[in-house]
Simulated assay, not measured.
Amino acid sequence: MPQQDQKQAVVRRADRPGDLGWVVMAHGESYHQQFGWDTDFEVLVAKIVADYGAKHDPTRGAAWIAELDGRRVGCVFLVVGDRPKVAKLRLLLVTPQGRGLRLGARLVAKCLAFAREAGYEQVTLWTNDVLVAARKIYQSFGFTLVDEERHHSFGHDLVGQNWTLDLLPTG
Rank of each mutant, 00 (worst) to 15 (best):
I65K: 05
L103K: 04
V130M: 06
K110L: 01
D15W: 04
G142C: 09
E121P: 00
Q4P: 11
L131A: 06
V11S: 03
A115P: 04
Y52F: 15
Q3G: 00
G70T: 08
R90V: 07
Q3V: 14
L93V: 06
D40Q: 14
R106K: 12
R60H: 11
E148L: 12
R72M: 03
V159A: 10
D69F: 07
L68Y: 01
K88H: 14
L78Q: 07
L168N: 14
G81V: 07
V76Y: 05
A14G: 13
H151I: 10
L131Y: 08
N162C: 13
V73K: 01
V146E: 15
G104Y: 00
R71P: 02
D5R: 13
G61A: 15
W163N: 07
K55R: 15
V108Y: 06
L167V: 13
K136L: 12
A9H: 07
L101A: 11
S153C: 09
E149I: 12
R83S: 13
H156S: 14
H32S: 08
D51T: 10
P169E: 12
V10R: 14
P2Q: 08
H151C: 15
T170H: 14
A66M: 09
M1D: 11
D157H: 11
W163H: 03
V76K: 10
R102G: 06
F114Q: 08
Q161L: 11
D5S: 14
G18N: 10
G160K: 13
P169W: 10
L20M: 12
V45S: 04
L131N: 02
A66Y: 03
G142V: 00
W64T: 07
E67H: 07
L131G: 00
G70E: 10
R99F: 01
Q34D: 08
M25F: 14
Q4V: 14
D40K: 01
G104D: 04
P58V: 07
G160T: 12
D129I: 02
H156F: 11
T95S: 02
L107K: 02
R16K: 14
R106Q: 09
V123G: 04
E29G: 08
E149H: 14
Q161Y: 12
G74L: 03
A46P: 03
D166C: 14
G104V: 01
K55I: 07
K136H: 13
L89E: 06
G61W: 05
D157P: 09
L78D: 09
V11A: 04
V80C: 06
D82M: 08
V86A: 04
G142L: 11
D19W: 01
Q4A: 11
D166E: 15
V94K: 02
L93I: 13
I65Q: 03
R83D: 13
A113G: 01
Q139I: 05
W126Q: 12
F77W: 11
V73G: 05
D15M: 05
A87G: 11
Q161G: 10
P17S: 03
V73L: 12
A9Q: 03
L20E: 02
D82V: 05
I65G: 01
F143T: 06
L91W: 09
A105I: 00
L68M: 15
V49S: 01
D40C: 01
I65N: 06
G171C: 12
A113F: 10
D51R: 14
G119L: 05
D57L: 09
R16V: 01
L93A: 06
W22E: 06
L101C: 07
V130Q: 08
G119F: 03
A50V: 05
K47V: 08
D19S: 06
T39F: 11
V146W: 07
H156C: 12
L68V: 12
R90Q: 12
V79E: 08
